[in-house]
Simulated scan of single mutants.
Amino acid sequence: MKFAIVSKGDPQSNEYVQKIRSYLEDFRFRYDEDQPEIVISVGGDGTFLYAFHKYKGRLEHTAFVGVHTGHLGFYADWVPEEIEKLVIAIAKSSFRIVEYPLLDVLVRYNQPAKRDSQYLALNESTVKSVEGTFVIDVEIKGELFERFRGDGLCVSTPSGSTAYNKALGGAIIHPSLEAIQIAEMASINNRVFRTIGSPLILPSHHTCVLKPVTQPDFLVTVDHLSFLEKDVKWIQFRVSEKKIRFARYKPFPFWSRVRASFIGD
């Protein structure tokens, strides 16, 4: 089996990387950064997001494993003290595949000759104005839902519902549900302007389209990546047909992850 390792980059994580690589190569596994069957992330959730985007073109052929070395490792099943157990599990036992939904982001521009931009998010995508109040028409399933005014909007996956979405007051959604969630950032609500004022959860057969009202330039984030999108005609969000595959060698139910990450003992 071919494997690759993505490190947080600090000395401690790099030390664990060398240990994991050495152990797996002793079991005749082959290190291959181009076409790995298993990608091991060593670090925190930020490292895992980097690993996902590095190998997002191989999602059908690659499964991910996380080793948590930071303060919060929501995507990680393993801790450094369990590295030898992890290596033995990879070498000696078959893994169970667990799939999580992803978010498709499509940006279309006013210039017909300019090619659409397409992004894939594991956690979330946010949209904000470059300057001034963010004003945008929100369409759901092809119909106008509201004209939003505020700081911006966050569209998240179920697994990403525990990240920035949660900080915005959004619901935590189990990743077995193929859905996306729209959460507001500091909406303007008064006698003149109104928004729904509540997170919205859309099923996989619904799309959300944002259409500019006052200006066509936006700051768009996709997980840890940021883009300045100019002359935007609309931005579309939907549940992706692609999924991320986790290699599970031991049970770690989603709600146990939530409890361990946010409540603890």
Rank of each mutant, 00 (worst) to 15 (best):
Y16E: 08
D116P: 15
L225Q: 11
L59F: 03
F148D: 02
F237W: 05
E146D: 04
I88P: 02
L72V: 10
V67K: 03
K242D: 14
V209T: 15
V258K: 15
H206K: 14
P36C: 12
D265P: 14
R147Y: 03
K85L: 14
V239E: 03
E139F: 12
V130P: 09
E139M: 10
D217I: 11
E184L: 00
A179Q: 02
Y75R: 02
H174S: 07
S159F: 07
L200K: 13
G9H: 07
K56S: 10
A91L: 02
L153C: 10
S13G: 11
K233I: 01
G57R: 08
Y100N: 11
A51R: 02
V105G: 04
I88R: 14
K141R: 15
V105Q: 05
F64T: 05
S117R: 14
E82N: 06
F74E: 01
V6I: 09
R248M: 09
E146V: 11
I180K: 00
S187M: 05
C154V: 15
N190R: 06
Y16D: 11
Q35S: 11
A260T: 14
S41I: 03
R108I: 05
G70H: 04
D45A: 07
V258Y: 15
V107S: 02
E139T: 08
S125W: 04
L72Y: 02
S261E: 07
L210F: 15
A76D: 02
F145C: 13
S41Y: 05
N189S: 07
G142Q: 13
E37C: 10
G170E: 04
S156K: 07
D116C: 12
L153G: 09
V17M: 15
I38V: 13
R194L: 08
L153R: 09
L228S: 11
K8V: 01
L219Y: 11
M185A: 00
K8N: 12
V107M: 09
Y16P: 03
I182L: 08
P175W: 05
R245S: 02
E25L: 14
V213F: 13
Y109T: 06
E82L: 06
F252V: 05
F218K: 08
F193Y: 05
K92R: 10
K211A: 14
F64W: 01
E15D: 14
R21F: 05
G9Y: 10
E178G: 00
N123D: 04
L144K: 15
I201C: 14
Y249H: 09
S240C: 06
R30S: 12
R194A: 09
F74T: 04
G169Q: 10
K211W: 11
K243L: 07
G73K: 06
V67S: 00
D104F: 10
K211E: 10
Q215K: 15
E37W: 04
F252P: 01
A186S: 06
N110I: 07
S13V: 10
G70S: 05
G46Y: 06
N190L: 00
A186I: 00
F134A: 07
A171I: 06
L228K: 08
I244S: 05
P212I: 08
D32G: 09
F134V: 05
G44A: 12
L144Y: 06
N190D: 11
Y23W: 13
S156C: 14
P199W: 08
E84M: 13
F27A: 14
